[in-house]
Design a protein around this nucleic acid. Structure first.
Length: 506
RNA sequence: GCUUCCUUAGCUCAGCCGGUUAGAGCAUCUGACUGUUAAUCAGAGGGUCCCUGGUUCGAGCCCAGGAGGGAGCGCCA
């Protein structure tokens, strides 16, 4: 050894868990003393997503993919494996020649198994796909015994899949629905962020029982068998965690108004809970709701926003989920894409409740429930307006005050309020909103009439005492939006883990 | 909460008026086939007919209760 600093060999690349390491010797060249620095270098073959590979143009290169086997078929000379990694609805075809992979070695490459495949990305010899992988190495990462694995390559009923909610995301249908759901959630944030709205987190646990949006879930740490009692025998909630009765929220609106009266334009997007015993294809006990609230917005501004917002969301899905929507269109609802495109292009029909009642009264169709001014419209009435009469989305406004909430702004006629419902084909009410009552005296009068306890909502009334301003907002049921965009028929199939009466599995 | 329908093989479903050993397609297994596309072809295995009780000589089928699921309606988003 001389006194010169030895030339350093470069550090070996860190192994990466999602990569395949290809080990090979690499001669780095002579060092100062004439010896050769020879190291075992890892050349990491980075894992590729199937979505990118399917549209790749640089072929005839080695790639690594990992995913779940959808099907395997073939003969004793060649086997074809359809591989899906969740990045897209499409599968990548892996070709395994019998020379490299005798069929008995592929026993565990069965439907549902997870595998890693190293191979050459090539132009496909067969029809039906443009690229495929000629496999060099196949590793089974996790087996799926075909005798036990419930998902088969043939179709399953949506009801059956609901009972195996831990596996249904692996189906084409639920993969598509979940990707669309993600895209829509992302589009919600993008839309509001772009338009100057601030995202506000309103509480999940609420102490106000006055929101009036239906049955609530009680939140308590009191022992259900032996709760503490007051002198008169009723449950003593002063002993409870929060020192008062509390519930899961049914709406973030009232707190949203607080934020809007400071930040101008805000929105909430969070879980919402209703303990109603609703057994329909359009109700969940736990769902996600989007509630924008805007200071200085009147009802017309509110309608403009709702219409632009909905169209923007649908447009985003059409642009970013084309493959998934095409699949859903072909499998479940042949009119889906036509309907989505028509919503984006059509101006929503706006009319008042009073005008709608006149149309329904003169309609030739017979209704189960009679139509009359002063009663709320039934599902069949809304469907008639949207699907038969106008054949496009409808925004109904100015409902009788008796059928709407206490906080809606009273019109000058004293009989109607500045409410708006956006009605969609197949869904019914997708948005409900209003201009809020900003006048302290009128609001407290309405609260008394509707038996809403003013003392619990002193802070809500304060908003009208200090710097009150016209403001408006609405609520969009996120799952109803996903229902509309995916063309699914049951809301339980557009949320990963549905919560509904007698069902909280998974 | 109301109305109504359903529960038979791993999945989808048939099963006649109550009659002997409960069927089909797909899936699975075995075999055939040189590039398949839900591959195809041949063969095989596979059943607590949702549970409990009742009627009957005899119940998958009729009756009662229970459990689970679907659809429609109401409440709502």
């Amino acid at each position: 050894m001389s006194g010169r600093q030895p030339r350093r060999c470069p550090p070996m690349a860190e192994p990466v868990d999602w990569a395949k390491e290809v080990w090979h010797a690499r001669v780095l060249g002579p060092t100062f003393d004439g010896s050769f620095c020879v190291i075992m270098a890892t050349e990491t073959l980075r894992r590729s997503g199937i979505k990118e590979l399917l549209v790749a143009t640089n072929l005839d290169r080695e790639v690594l993919v990992k995913g779940w086997v959808r099907t395997r078929r073939g003969n004793k000379y060649v086997q074809f494996i359809a591989l899906n990694d969740g990045s897209t609805i499409h599968n990548l075809q892996v070709v395994a020649s019998a020379e490299l992979f005798p069929e008995e070695n592929l026993k565990d490459v069965a439907t549902g198994a997870s595998v890693a495949v190293r191979g050459t990305l090539v132009a496909s010899q067969g029809k039906g796909q443009t690229v495929e992988i000629q496999a060099l190495e196949i590793t089974v990462l996790g087996k799926a015994d075909p005798e036990e694995y419930p998902l088969q390559k043939k179709g399953h009923s949506l009801e059956f899949l609901r009972e195996i909610a831990h596996l249904r995301p692996r189906t084409n249908t639920f993969g598509a629905v979940l990707r669309v759901r993600h895209a829509l959630a992302f589009a919600v944030h993008e839309y509001f962020n772009k338009n100057g709205f601030y995202y506000v987190h309103t509480p999940i646990i609420t102490g106000s029982d006055a929101e009036g949006a239906g049955q609530m879930f009680r939140v308590t740490t009191l022992a259900p068998e032996h709760p503490p009692r007051t002198a008169d025998g009723s449950v003593d909630f002063s002993e409870d965690f929060f020192g008062k009765p509390t519930n899961l929220t049914v709406s973030g609106q009232l707190e949203g108004e607080i934020a809007a009266m400071a930040l101008g334009k805000i929105y909430t997007f969070g879980p919402t809970f209703r303990a109603e015993n609703s057994n329909t294809a359009r109700h969940l006990a736990e769902f996600w709701m989007i509630e924008p609230e805007m200071a200085f917005y009147e009802l017309e501004d509110n309608m403009d926003l709702a219409e632009d917002f909905l169209k923007s969301l649908v447009r985003y899905a059409l642009a970013h989920c084309a493959d998934d929507l095409q699949f859903l269109n072909d499998q479940y609802d042949k009119e889906l894409l036509v309907r989505l495109n028509s919503v984006v292009e059509t101006e929503f029909q706006r009319l008042t409740y009073t005008e709608a009642v006149e149309i329904l009264k003169t309609a030739k169709q017979k209704f189960e429930f009679p139509v009359g001014w002063g009663t709320d419209l039934q599902s069949e009435h809304e469907r008639y307006l949207v699907e038969k009469h106008f054949k496009k989305p409808v925004i109904l406004t100015d409902y009788p005050k008796e059928v709407k909430s206490f906080y809606m702004k009273l019109n000058e006629d004293g009989r109607t309020v500045r409410a708006m419902d956006v009605l969609f084909p197949g869904i019914g009410e997708i948005i409900g909103g209003s201009q809020r009552e900003e006048d302290y005296t009128k609001l407290i009068t309405r609260m008394a009439e509707m038996h809403v306890p003013a003392e619990d909502l002193w802070w809500y009334l304060d908003l009208r005492k200090f710097g009150t301003a016209p403001h408006s907002g609405f609520g969009l049921g996120f799952e109803r939006l996903v229902l509309f965009v995916t063309g699914m028929a049951n809301i339980r199939d557009v949320i990963p883990f549905p919560r509904y009466p007698k069902n909280a599995a998974f």
